[in-house]
Structures are given as C-alpha cells and as structure tokens.
Design a protein around this nucleic acid. Sequence first.
DNA 1: CGAGGTATATTGCAATGCAAAGAACCTTCT
DNA 2: AGAAGGTTCTTTGCATTGCAATATACCTCG
Lengths: 113, 113
Amino acid sequence: MIMEKIKLENSRAQMKKGVLDFAVLLVVSEGAIYAPDIIVKLKEAGLRVVEGTIYPLLNRLKESEFLEYEWKESKYGPPRKYYQLTSRGRAALRELTDGWNELSRTISNLLKK
Amino acid sequence: MIMEKIKLENSRAQMKKGVLDFAVLLVVSEGAIYAPDIIVKLKEAGLRVVEGTIYPLLNRLKESEFLEYEWKESKYGPPRKYYQLTSRGRAALRELTDGWNELSRTISNLLKK
DNA sequence: CGAGGTATATTGCAATGCAAAGAACCTTCT
DNA sequence: AGAAGGTTCTTTGCATTGCAATATACCTCG
C-alpha cells in the first residue's frame, strides 16, 4: 500500500497552489500582461510559479472565458500574448475574493482558540 | 486535447484544499479528538470535509509522525481513534502557521494595488 | 546560416480531495 | 438469536492540477 509521508514544504506549496487562479486573476486585473511578466509579478508578491504551471493555467482561464488575449509584437523575440480580464473574469475575481475572505475567517476561527 | 473549463466552486474548493493539513492540525491541537468530531469542528469553522478525505489525511499525518492516536471505546459504536499532536506535529504546526501568514501577506500584496 | 535569447506549449508524473462502496463493531427491537 | 440501523474506519477509482523537462517556433545579431 502506498502511504507517502507528508513533506512540510509540500504542505506549504499546497497552500499556495490553492490560490493560484486567484493570484493570476489579481495580477491580470492590474492591466494587460503576458506570461513571463505574470511570473515576475507573482514572484515579487511571494509566489514562485514556473512556465509549466502558468501556460496551462492561462489556457484554462481563457477557455473559461475569464481571460482573453491579444498578440503583440516584441522587439526582443516572438510575439506575446497579452492577457486581460473579461467581464466574466471580473465576476470570477469578485467571487474568488469572497472565497479568500471566507478562508481567512475560517483560519481565524481555528487560530483564535 | 483535454481542456477543462474552470468551475468557480472548484476554485474556491481548491483554496480550502490547500489549507486542510493545517486546519486539521489546528483542530487536533485543541485536544485529543476523533475523526467524525474533527469533521464537525471543521464544518463549524467553515470547511466542508468528508470521510474519504479525512481518513487518508489522518493516516498521512500519523505516518509522518505529526499525529498519534489511542483507541477509546464508545457507547455508540465501534472504538474510536483519538488523535493528538506529537512534538513533531507541534513543530509542523508552527511551520504551517508561518506558511499561512506568508500566504496572507502575499495575497495582501496583490490585493492592495 | 549558426548561436543565443525569448515566448509559448506539451508530456508524464506526483499529490490529494472526494464520491461511493465496503467492512467491522455496537445497540436495540422483535 | 437474528435483523435493522447507526457509528467508525478503510479503500478504490477518478479528476484536478503544479511542475520538471522537453519541444517548438520566432527573433536578432554577427
């Protein structure tokens, strides 16, 4: 039987994993932006995210019509997909903000004992 | 190609998922307790958790030596496993509390713009 | 053209929540 | 004793998703 031990770094990573959709929508809500800059912004905020995570996630967010993108040319390489929120995306961001606030309350409830 | 749309309820659930280890350790830190009561406490705090989630999680936490248990008889059914924190568990709880505080700061960083 | 940098995408794996089903133990009622 | 129903713990199979690694394509410069 498989019975993996829990690694603490994994648990902390799991916490971050849970808020990634939310964090990406927050970053994009500040203005049109392309993937490598999203990664930089998240890192500045304290979230380490890599390409293999962000591209599938952006595709899911686009498929869900929370994000849309426009190609823009670059002086430094191939064209970039600049993402921005759709109106559905803004609604989702409000929902997820509520979810975050609920979760904060939940943990506060458990911590204050 | 598989390209699932993101469901908002799932995203909110994902957030909660990320803190489950932490939440369970917090509940157990209040005193020896068995699984169905852990579920109740989490529900009171705002986290919906079911058996198929909690039992494997408790087993992982025990395997990781964060929790230990004693069998206790019950008047209402089969004996129960009462879990409590080990010293490793208390250390893990401090680590995860730090992780939670970091995550709160991260989201604050992103929200305040 | 070749080298090196930039941008996006894909594959395979690992972790884990959960629905559903099952197993084992207990009390109560008939 | 047997049946019914509740309680407790376990297991199986599936879906989701982060990530390392790899691939693909485009761009500029020499």
